[in-house]
């Protein structure tokens, strides 16, 4: 499954996605305003408590998100040891660790559909420049749908080329992949237009008339 969401029924899971993102954003700003190690360490403890005890996420789910940045954090600490000293180094590392973990908790406890809805809500102000939020949601949903399909298509092209004896498949893979994707986009857009996703601005009347379109 193409998602980092872990189903659950905890208060963290049930909290509105927008609220969780707002808390995450506030944490992101707040942590950079304080430089006291005990405050940052407290925030880290709080995030771990929320993730492990309240949301009951498995520790390895959180670790999976920390692991890719782990070496980076270690290197950062070493640089700080040499340049500024151990305490600012500890603050910088704990700060990043807290943010990465907090973001992992939000991602693991929030459904993709709920987050897509937040994306649509966030782009509402862009209506002023002609962006239609529903179409943004449609494009994000389309991308999520087509990633597994394109991965399969890439694998198939690769197999076909290997079968013909091509050893170096990297560049040879890309040209047919890109062109087949452009053709697929063409077919897809015709199918969407046939179902009412054309370029005419969404007006209340039109919306009431057609129930199949994404508007």
């Amino acid at each position: 499954m193409l998602s980092l969401y872990l189903p659950g029924a905890s208060p963290v899971h049930r909290a509105p996605a927008g609220l969780k993102l707002a808390v995450l954003a506030a944490l992101g700003v707040g942590l950079f305003l304080v430089s006291r190690v005990e405050v940052v360490a407290g925030a880290l403890a709080a995030v771990l408590a929320v993730g492990l005890a309240v949301a009951r996420l498995p520790g390895r789910a959180l670790w999976a998100q920390v692991r890719p940045v782990w070496i980076w954090l270690a290197a950062l600490f070493v640089v700080h040891l040499l340049v500024t000293g151990p305490l600012p180094g500890a603050v910088a590392v704990l700060r990043l660790l807290t943010l990465v973990l907090a973001a992992a908790v939000v991602t693991a406890t929030t459904r993709v559909t709920a987050l897509v809805a937040v994306v649509e809500w966030l782009v509402q102000p862009l209506r002023l420049v002609g962006v239609r939020p529903a179409r943004v949601g449609l494009v994000v949903a389309m991308t999520l749908r087509f990633i597994p399909l394109l991965a399969e298509r890439a694998a198939r092209i690769r197999e076909a080329q290997t079968a013909r004896g091509a050893e170096r498949v990297r560049l040879g893979l890309l040209v047919p992949l890109v062109i087949s994707v452009l053709q697929l986009a063409h077919t897809l857009s015709e199918a969407l237009d046939a179902r009412g996703a054309d370029d005419t601005p969404a007006r209340p009347l039109r919306r009431a008339a057609g129930s199949v379109g994404p508007a």
Binding site: V139, M142, V181, A185, S189
Partner: peptide, 11 residues
């Protein structure tokens, strides 16, 4: 254009 955008994001 939307389809191009979505599919290239997928690429």
């Amino acid at each position: 254009d939307l389809a191009y955008v979505a599919l290239f994001a997928a690429i």
